[in-house]
Amino acid sequence: MYFLTDELVFPPVENANVEGLLAVGGDLSPERLLLAYQNGIFPWFDNDSIILWWSPDPRMVLFPNEIKVSKSMKKVIRNKQFRLTKNTCFEKVLEYCSSVPREGQDGTWITEAMKTAYIKLHKNGIAQSYEVWEEDKLVGGLYGVDLSHVFCGESMFSLASNASKFAFIKLAEELSLNEYKVIDCQLHTDHLASMGAKEIARKDFMAILK
């Protein structure tokens, strides 16, 4: 197990164990977080844990032009049930992502320290949020880290049926138009797979990232 010091450095991702755990410790400074994402690494831990850094193999990704939009979602989009904004209320999206319950999950990994860190990244123009509105109510959204050619999705929330799907579809459409290579979804979920995300070898993800 690699223990981080104050030095801004990570071990090679190939050193991660079979679960994808690469290193422990360090801090959540904007500089370290950006270095981590640029090297295919992300933090994931809870309030009772020290900082844990991960680089799983395989990696769950979505190629933006491969987004799958179901018939029901096409109808939602056609009916203009939702509208989308970007970076209008990052902190509110972050708060909802940390507090809205998810099926099959107890609690949240978005600790107060994580919130502070990503707010700093947002103020530096690196962390982005997409907000979904139904009339004047915020009903869904997502946030992630924008590396200019790869978008690292971190979390999403939904207070209305299909709201987070709408955000994800609109994100994929925008990134496809801007020729982004991939959306990093990190770990497999059936929800993401149903929308076109798939697992690729970590070495292939690293080649895209670099």
Rank of each mutant, 00 (worst) to 15 (best):
E134Q: 15
A160H: 13
S129W: 09
E131H: 13
I119R: 06
V150K: 01
A167I: 05
F157K: 05
H149C: 15
L159V: 15
A127K: 02
F166I: 09
N162I: 11
K170A: 03
N162W: 07
V139F: 04
L147F: 12
S161I: 15
S164T: 10
E134M: 13
S155Y: 10
L159S: 12
A127R: 00
G140D: 02
V139N: 00
A167D: 04
D146S: 04
H149D: 12
V145A: 03
M156A: 12
L138A: 07
I119V: 14
H149T: 11
Q128K: 12
G140I: 05
E131I: 08
I119P: 01
I126S: 02
E135A: 10
V132P: 03
V150M: 12
S148N: 15
A167K: 03
N162S: 15
S161T: 15
G141Y: 07
K123G: 04
L138Y: 09
L121P: 01
K123N: 11
K123H: 09
K123T: 08
I126P: 00
W133F: 12
V139T: 09
C152N: 11
L138F: 12
C152Y: 03
A163Q: 08
S148I: 14
L121I: 12
G140M: 09
H122S: 05
F166H: 07
V150L: 11
K120N: 14
I119W: 08
L142E: 01
G125P: 02
L142S: 03
L147S: 08
G140Q: 06
G144T: 03
H122M: 09
L121C: 10
K123F: 08
K165C: 07
S148T: 14
Y143R: 03
E131G: 09
S158K: 12
I126E: 00
A127T: 00
E134K: 14
F166Y: 13
L142K: 01
Y130C: 06
A160L: 15
N124K: 12
D146W: 04
G141F: 08
S155F: 12
L142A: 05
S161L: 15
E131T: 06
Y143L: 04
G140E: 03
D136Q: 04
L159Y: 14
L147N: 07
Q128M: 09
H149K: 15
E154M: 11
K137I: 13
S129G: 09
H122L: 08
S129I: 01
V150G: 03
F151T: 03
F157C: 08
E154S: 11
K123C: 03
E131A: 12
V139G: 01
D146G: 00
S155N: 11
L159T: 15
G140Y: 06
